[in-house]
């Protein structure tokens, strides 16, 4: 297996504050890996740095043999790195179809655009139904599908997904992750940020846990699923409270 992405000692932040304090991890080609952690751990910042929305202050990222940090955002998309951002960020006044077409804006993705559009519509029948509607008028779940579809239109080799379950009802989350599973079945490498650990671990083969800008734990999906301390202490929930109460008892 060859390395798709290799992150070394990555530091980044906003203005004065430093969020990523030396991040290290690898992704192999074709893998589906998840990044877990509590709010404020730096997960979205990680995605932002990888996609180029935010600049790194130090460290290195190797993307399939290339120096990613030296590439401008549009060059990264050109090279096959595509992010479906937190909060969807669809183009509200453009139609569903226009949003998708824009996903394949970069030159290398324009060829085969029509074929890929059909693939997306097959994957997300709801989008096909609503292709002429303004994206801003759709429900959260539909917008998430649209954001995913748009990211796929870029013909990605590394697909970054930031909180796809955010704000969605459980049934919709299921539908969305069903689609992610289908995408995962292809050769695309997927890196998935999620607070919904159950959903994340249902599609990822392994994962990292992040806290205060660093990776603090790594493991296979099975390990992470069965580690109550790690899971609950960093994600929160009933077990965490029990442990704390036990300590004070």
């Amino acid at each position: 297996m060859s390395t798709m992405l290799s992150v070394r000692d990555l530091h980044a932040g906003y203005g004065e504050s430093s969020v990523l304090q030396g991040l290290n991890f690898d992704l192999q080609k074709g893998e589906v890996v998840c990044l877990l952690g509590a709010n404020g751990a730096g997960k979205t910042t990680t995605m932002a740095v990888l996609s180029g929305l935010v600049d790194a202050s130090s460290g290195g990222v190797n993307y399939d043999g290339q120096d990613l940090l030296a590439m401008a955002s549009h060059q990264r998309v050109e090279a096959g790195l595509s992010l479906s951002p937190e909060g969807r960020k669809v183009f509200p006044n453009l139609t569903v179809e226009e949003n998708l077409v824009l996903g394949s804006f970069n030159a290398s993705a324009r060829a085969g655009r029509a074929a890929r559009l059909e693939e997306v519509y097959t994957l997300f029948p709801r989008l096909a139904e609503r292709r002429a509607q303004s994206a801003g008028l759709m429900s959260g779940g539909e917008q998430q599908m649209l954001a995913l579809g748009r990211a796929i239109m870029a013909k990605p080799r590394l697909l970054l997904l930031d909180e796809p379950s955010l704000g969605l009802a459980p049934m919709i989350v299921q539908a969305v992750f069903e689609a992610i599973r289908k995408i995962a079945a292809t050769e695309i490498t997927i890196f998935l940020v999620e607070q919904n650990t159950h959903a994340a671990l249902s599609v990822a083969s392994r994962g990292y846990v992040m806290s205060a800008g660093r990776i603090v734990h790594a493991g296979s999906a099975a390990e992470l699923r069965q580690s109550p301390e790690v899971r609950d202490a960093f994600i929160g929930g009933k077990s965490a409270r029990t442990i704390r109460e036990a300590r004070h008892a």
């Binding site: 549009h74 998309v77 960020k89 183009f91 453009l94 996903g103």
Partner: peptide, 21 residues
Amino acid sequence: GRATRALDEQRDAAVLVGINV
């Protein structure tokens, strides 16, 4: 033209679809 409208509305997403801002 489409890219211009996208940029007008949602700058971050425009960057993410590979528009050379």
